[in-house]
Structures are given as C-alpha cells and as structure tokens.
Nucleic acid binder design. Structure first.
Length: 691
DNA sequence: ATAGGGTTAG
C-alpha cells in the first residue's frame, strides 16, 4: 500500500502503520517504515517521531528511541510520556524518573499530565516507593488531573498503595472513585491477595459479583484463585471454576492457567493434567505451571516429560520454567540431569538471574555437591535472602554446622537482614551437627536480638534439635512451655527422636498425643507402628496400620536410587526387578558374611513385621538403600564415590551396615535420605550418628 | 491501570 505511487503515504499514514508495528512488536517492519518516513522527509514530524519512540521502546530498543527523541526539533508532553512509559514498561526506574525531572526543566518546561502519572505509578508500586507515590497522589489532587472520570489515575493510585502494603489508603481511593471498571475491581482484589488478606479479598470479590457480572474478568478470578490456592480452599476454588464456565471465560488463557495452578497446588494433579489437556491454547505459563505442579506433587520424572513436550511443541521455556524444573533434579538427586539444566540455563542466558542461581545452588547441595553450590553463591551477581538461606540450609543437610554459622555471621556483614526462614535453616543445621547449645542460643537471639517472633516451624526445629541431640525430656518440657498449642509436626519431631534413641516410654506418651491430634500424614503412622513393632507389640502396630489404611493414608514405600552415567536405577525393598538382581543379592550376602566377622549383628528392632529372627535379618538385608549401594559397588570403579538417594529416612540397621560396607569394600558412600546427607568412609559416618 | 507459572525451612 505504501508503494502506490498515485497515492503516497503522508504524515497521517505513518503513525498508524507504526502503531501496528508496535502492537505486533515487529521491529523489522518498523525499521523499514522508519527509513521510508525519512525518505519522505517526515523525520522531524511530531506524530511520526512519537510513534517511532513508542515502537522502539516496546521492543526495548532504548538507543534508537532516544536518538529519535533527541533529534526532534520540539518535544510535547506526548513525546515525553512515550519515553517515560517506555522506560517504565521495562522497569527502568531511574531512567523513567530522570525523564520526569527533565521534562519539567528549562524554558520549554512541561507539566506531567494524567498519562505521565499512569505510566509512572506502576513503577513506584514495583519499587514500594510509598513516599514518592504519596507525592504523586498529592500532585494529582493539586493539579486536579483527571483522565476521563479519573478511572485510570484512580486505579493506578490504589494499585500503588496496595503494592506498598497500604491497604487502608488503597481502599480509601477505591471508595472515593465515582466510576470503577473491571480493572479497578481486579486491582483492589489483587491488592488484598498480595498482602495476604484473603478473607477480605473474597469479600470484595463478592461485592463485585453483587453488582452483576459486568465487572467479572479473568484477572479478578485469577487473584481469587490465588487466594484459594494459598488457603488450600478447594471448595471456593471449584465454585470459581463453575463461575468461569458459566460466564464463558473458561477458555481464557489467564483463567485456565490460574485454575491449573490452583488444582496442582491442592494436590489434585490429575485434574490439573486433564485441564491442561483440554486447554485450547497453551503458553509458557501453562507448561511451567504443570511442570511445577508435578514437582510439588513429588513426580519429578513426569515434570521432565512435560518439559520435553514443551520443547517439542516449540514453546520457549523462560526463567520461571527453569526455576520450576531445576528442583526436579534436586528431588531426584540426579546430578547429570542437574548439570544439563545448568548448561541449558547458561545457553539461554539466564545464568546470572538470582532465582536461577538459587535453584541451582539448592540442586547442587541436594545432589551432594556443596562445593559447586558455594561456587555459584560466590560468583552470582546479586544475592537475595533466599540465596543466603539456601546456602545455610545446604551446609545444614551436609552436617556442616560450623560453616552454616560462619555464613550466617557473614550475612550480617553484608547488611542482609535474616528472616524467619534463616533461623529455621540455622537451627536445623545445628541439629544435624549435634550443636545443641549453639542452636538454643540462636533461638534466643532470634527473638531478642532480631525481633523475630517464633512460629510453629521454629518450634519444630527446636524440638528436633533437642530431641535428636538426646535431650528428650527437655524437648518434652519445651513443648509444654510453648505459647501456642503444639501441632502434630512438633510431636512428630519428638516421636522420630524417641525412635532413634529407643525411648519407648516417652514414645508411647507422645504417640498418644499424636493419636489425639490425628496423625495427619503418613510419616507419623509409620513412626507409630514402628515404635510398637520395636517394642515387640505387633498387635498394636498392626492396629495403627489398619487405621492408617482406613483413613486412606498410603504408605509410600521406601525407595532408593542411584544415578549411573546419567540414568537412574531405582530399587524398593526386596525388589528383584532389576536385570542384575542375582548379582546384587549375591554381593549383599557376601558383604553380610564379611561384616559378621567384624562383629556386626542385625538390629532387628527395625523390622516391622512379626517374623522369625532369621527372616527378619533377610528383610533388613534387602532394604532398598542396601540394594542400590550393592549395585553401585558392582558397577562403579573403586575410586568413585557411591551416591545413593532414599525417599525416606535411612533405618538404624542400614546405617550400621553401610558403615561396615564402607570399611570392607573400601568405598566412599554418600546416602542422601529424606533428612540429610550421610557420608560413610572407613567405617565412620559424617553425621556422628546424629541422624 | 489489573492478572496467570518460579527459588529457601521442617
């Protein structure tokens, strides 16, 4: 069309065509039209220049945008706003602020108008710059700046207040607005959700519905669904699903993604999968939500399948996708997979991202490479609180309590304020290293020096610290002295320690408490029944299992795996499905003969069923972790460390046997269980039996 | 102007 010689494009044509390029983010076409306009002698036209700035800014080409801007003979407020909005769009706070100041300088001084503020306010919101936000508010009142009906400025203002945590002001602005639209409602509902005030968010959502369905948008439903996910309120979540379907919004991408994520977080992974399959359009967010859903539900292998499917469908993973996927490697302790993901992240240019580094650090720590973890920590461009916490936690699971403490002190030197999670990491690091006194001191300091009120999670860590360290009675008293009612997880920590220290009497007492509270979760059922078994009270043990079955808690079977040349070999107790099972079982029998000579005796108190002594020994001998290690002994050369992962905790007998194995087979063996790392070498374990 | 997926602890 531009080439029709009879009707050449003029200064009215170019801005519209450029606008189309901007919407499509078609930089190539935009550049061609830029050249075309220049040839037509329109390089200084106000409207053409403004449209060019808008186009370049949308495509994040700041240098050409600025060049056009500076070449303009005169600049009006629209041109200034295009620059400012462009910087704001890409979160460039300082550039945007500079624009704001410069436009008011000099003889051609221009006052900010409503569009200026609407572009500026989201930036202030993102920066939590409350003071500046307030002065913008004051200015808008003084200059009586209104866009049509004040909806745009009003919405941007209330959003800014909400994101700065000032819900009272947000609500006041909202109430004072004469006209509201769907965006206004979304902003106020979303504001309450972001601040964690879920009940009020639901209240506002209902208020909105009370005015009819005219304001209902996928955006406001998305916020409400996020509230459901964080409250684990499936009931309301399903109602919202129905509401979406009724209003014909169920095929909206944002709405679909929110639903998918809500179901996945509620543990309904099948529903999430079904929803995903039915979605007409899927984007990066849909795939990422499903990946993270599988990881959260412990199905790391399925997460990889989704990731592959995504690539096959040519959907590009972004930072959030990779941050969801990397924990799958951590979960599987699959170092080779993890290294692949690391490589992939480097290729994609995401390696400097803080959240990516955090995920990688965690992955390497959980895959046994605390050294690589630290390397990333040392070189990453910017650290946040999660980085410090992850590193401290990494040292913790490796039993490196001293290093964890040192890092915590270092954190103070870097002017990084510890948060509640930091102390959970720190205390549990002390617990894994048997540093009971030190852990108690940190708990004290947390409240008195750092002003952090202990939450239930801190009490769990403290009970674990005391009880694991053998101070069972003190742990019991500690629970009694809690300012809130201890929940099952607190008692569960004590019960686990009773099991390790074989204190049946206290264990029974704790078991009674847990029964009263409702065991909530498979782990406590297993602990409980194991306690009874260990005391030889098999009837009661069986009874617990029956209740467990009735309540529908499936016991996840003990499973161990080992990665050899990048592929995973998994074993469950007594499993003979592996092609090399005959050799593996023969090797274990040989090992048993060798270690019996050194004085090993099976600790049959760890066997759950009522069997004959000899059968009990066999049941123990073929525990999954022993099978995986034996496979490692057979396949790996002697200089290689055998690294095995187990989904549950290592049992006491296995712990003893593996110590002997490291001695008689002269192997370094690392076992990562549900709890921490055990490094076996020369008949010793790094955990010093604090496990 | 609003909004969907993501990293740490037990």
């Amino acid at each position: 069309m531009l080439r029709d010689a009879r009707c050449p494009p003029n200064k009215y044509t170019f801005p519209f065509v450029l606008k189309a390029c901007s919407v499509l983010q078609d930089l190539r076409a935009g550049r061609a039209i830029h050249r075309h306009a220049a040839r037509a002698g329109l390089h200084a036209d106000l409207f053409v220049c403004t449209a060019l700035i808008d186009l370049y800014m949308k495509c994040a080409r700041f240098v050409p945008a600025a060049a056009v801007f500076h070449a303009m003979p005169a600049r009006d407020a629209v041109a200034w706003n295009a620059m400012l909005a462009g910087y704001a769009l890409h979160g460039m706070y300082h550039h945007a602020l500079e624009c704001l100041l410069r436009m008011q300088e000099g003889c051609a001084s221009l006052r900010p108008n409503a569009s200026t503020l609407v572009a500026l306010l989201p930036l202030l919101a993102q920066q939590s710059a409350l003071c500046q936000g307030k002065s913008v508010h004051a200015y808008s009142v003084r200059a009586s700046l209104h866009d049509k009906d004040g909806v745009l400025v009003g919405t941007a203002l209330l959003d800014m207040y909400a994101k700065c945590g000032e819900l009272l002001y947000a609500r006041r602005v909202f109430e004072a607005m004469p006209i509201r639209n769907d965006v206004t409602w979304s902003a106020i509902i979303g504001g309450f959700v972001v601040c964690g005030r879920m009940t009020e968010a639901f209240g506002l959502f209902k208020d909105m519905l009370a005015q009819g369905l005219g304001f209902l948008s996928p955006t406001s439903v998305a916020s409400a669904l996020r509230a459901c996910a964080s409250l684990a309120d499936l009931h309301i979540g399903k109602q919202l699903h129905v509401l979406l379907a009724k209003s014909g919004l169920h095929s909206d991408l944002t709405a679909g993604n929110s639903l998918l994520s809500m179901y996945a977080k509620a543990g309904l992974i099948d529903e999430a999968t079904a929803l995903f399959d039915e979605m007409a359009a899927k984007d990066t967010v849909s795939y990422s939500a499903l990946v993270s859903g599988y990881v959260q539900n412990g199905m790391a292998d399925a997460a990889f399948l989704v990731f592959r499917k995504m690539q096959a469908c040519n959907v590009q993973p972004d930072v959030a996708t990779m941050v969801s996927l990397i924990p799958a490697c951590a979960h599987l302790a699959a170092l080779q997979h993890g290294k692949c993901s690391h490589g992939s992240v480097i290729v994609r240019g995401m390696a400097p991202e803080t959240s990516i580094c955090n995920a990688l650090m965690d992955m390497y720590a959980k895959c046994g490479r605390i050294d690589l973890s630290r390397q990333i920590f040392d070189v990453m461009p910017a650290r946040d609180i999660v980085s410090w916490n992850t590193m401290i936690a990494g040292y913790g699971i490796h039993g490196l309590g001293k290093e964890a403490t040192a890092l915590f002190l270092d954190m103070n030197n870097h002017a990084c304020e510890p948060d509640g999670v930091t102390f959970i990491c720190l205390i549990s690091a002390c617990s894994h290293s048997g540093l009971v006194t030190e852990g108690k001191r940190w708990f004290h300091m947390m409240a008195h020096k750092y002003g952090i009120t202990p939450r239930m999670e801190h009490y769990i860590s403290m009970v674990d610290l005391l009880a694991r360290g053998g101070f069972l009675d003190e742990a019991y008293q500690f629970i009694q002295s809690m300012p809130m009612k201890a929940d099952v997880r607190v008692w569960g920590a004590l019960l686990a320690a009773c099991r390790v220290h074989k204190n049946i009497d206290l264990g029974k007492q704790v078991a009674r408490m847990i029964q009263k509270l409702g065991p909530e979760g498979t782990g406590n059922f297993v602990l409980l029944s194991n306690m009874f078994s260990a005391a030889g009270r098999f009837d009661e043990a069986a009874e617990v299992r029956i209740i467990q079955k009735e309540k529908g808690f499936k016991k996840s079977p003990g499973c161990s795996w080992i990665e050899i040349n990048g592929s995973l070999h998994a074993f469950i107790g007594g499993d003979r499905s592996h092609p090399r099972s005959p050799e593996i079982y023969q090797e274990l029998d040989n090992i048993l003969v060798d270690i019996n000579k050194l004085g090993y005796q099976a600790d049959t108190s760890f066997v759950l069923q009522d069997l004959e002594e000899e059968e009990k020994e066999k049941a123990l001998l073929y525990h999954s972790e022993k099978l995986a290690i034996a496979f490692g002994v057979l396949t790996l050369s002697e200089d290689k460390t055998i690294f095995v992962t187990k989904n549950l905790r290592v049992c006491g007998d296995c712990h003893t046997v593996i110590k002997y194995m490291s001695l008689v087979r002269r192997r370094d063996i690392i076992v990562r269980d549900a709890n921490r790392f055990h490094h076996f070498k020369n008949g010793q374990c790094s955990c010093g039996d604090f496990w």
